[in-house]
Design a protein around this nucleic acid. Structure first.
Lengths: 218, 218
DNA sequence: TAGATTGTTAATCGATTAACAATC
DNA sequence: TAGATTGTTAATCGATTAACAATC
């Protein structure tokens, strides 16, 4: 184990490794090489070896990585050896959709609370969780040991919700609202706004209109 | 206008600029400096100037950028001076949720077709669009000049759907399924899987369990 | 003119990839 | 032993930031 800084890019690849390793595990594949991983995940094998080596010597020369062992190690690195509790703020369509992914998150994470501002929704259920008013956010976050907040409220409410999550002691936020949130540096934030993704994809479209093509990265 | 390669990182910031510029436009702010932009968007002003300068000299020394003019220019760069048609494949909860964002996309993009495999859904409406069977994908994509596909089907169906979209001549794919899709290099693909985002956020959580903290990027 | 701010170059910083000794 | 594959160093590549002349 090095005590180097681990870059964001490395951390964001770990769940991708984990997902594929879980698939290998289901198929009872015992070991996997960086080359196989690279092929499946469209990554350079050297990069994968380097990523993993930041955290320890998990592989065996000549053999590769033991699938079960590597799963265990990556889960530890990501703090997933304990269940991480998540709160969802905003019980609209998108909130509903995300709450269905609880199964995908397996035992690693769980949405344990859902909040909404609309009186009509309070008290109704969403995947067996009763929707609570946002006024109860602080108390519930503390009571249920919620570590991550997901924001799916309209953009003009997002900053206020973020402030409340931060005040309640949350450690990280996944923000689906199309706006840049200001949070203190100790709170990790990730923008998950799909309209931004969609608009940027338009850049890469060929135009059959005679306009010169943008030059892309190879 | 340079004929340099424009990096992915630059392109992904353009919609963020655009979004904020639109807000300034609504508030009738006539000009904006790279410094103000940087402050609001948490970016380095030099980076913003450099990003924009890849595409032309849009600013005025001593003044800043004309909001209306810059909006027009960024829309041109992103091919958004024409309406881009989008198809949604997968009319589940997530598909439903995304279709509600049509308003956010303004006149730049529009979801014009929705497909699903489930016979029960075929023929029903989702935001005034009739859900069609996946068998009609190729024909409809061509007929309606669909340029971008959004995949919100279960992971095991995602690759098949991607293949069909590619065969139908789509230019870019936004993939919400938690799996790596293989597409030819001329098709642009973006992974929008939120479970990956969520798991990677767990890395940054403090553990009150005595374990040594990971060292973060500053 | 004085102040502000761009566009651009050079410096820095960081991430990816190639190469290979070590070794299973 | 021969073949495979890791962990790691060095080389490369790319992106960000600082600095400043040009100029509105």
């Amino acid at each position: 184990m090095k005590s180097e800084k681990i870059s964001d890019a490395v951390v964001r690849r770990l769940p991708v490794y984990l997902r594929f390793l879980n698939e290998l595990s289901r198929r009872e594949v015992p070991t996997v090489s960086s080359q196989e991983l690279g092929q499946k995940l469209d990554l350079n094998p050297a990069q994968i070896r380097k990523d993993l080596a930041y955290f320890g010597d998990f592989g065996r020369k000549g053999i590769g990585y033991d699938v079960a062992y590597l799963i265990e190690k990556i889960q530890q690195i990501l703090n997933l050896d304990q269940q991480i509790n998540v709160a969802l703020v905003g019980a609209g369509n998108l909130g509903h959709a995300l709450s269905n992914y609880n199964a995908y998150l397996k035992d690693n994470m769980k949405i344990v609370a859902v909040f909404d501002a609309s009186p009509a929704k309070i008290g109704t259920q969403i995947n067996n969780i009763t929707i609570q008013p946002i006024e109860e956010l602080t108390e519930t976050v503390r009571e249920k040991n919620v570590r991550i907040g997901i924001i799916t409220v309209p953009d003009f409410e997002a900053q206020r919700v973020a402030d409340q999550l931060v005040a309640a002691g949350i450690g990280a936020i996944l923000n689906f609202a199309p706006t840049i949130l200001k949070v203190p540096p100790e709170v990790r934030i990730h923008a998950a706004d799909f309209t931004t993704d969609l608009l940027s994809l338009a850049y890469y479209l060929d135009n059959g209109n005679g306009k010169e093509q943008p030059v892309h990265e190879s």
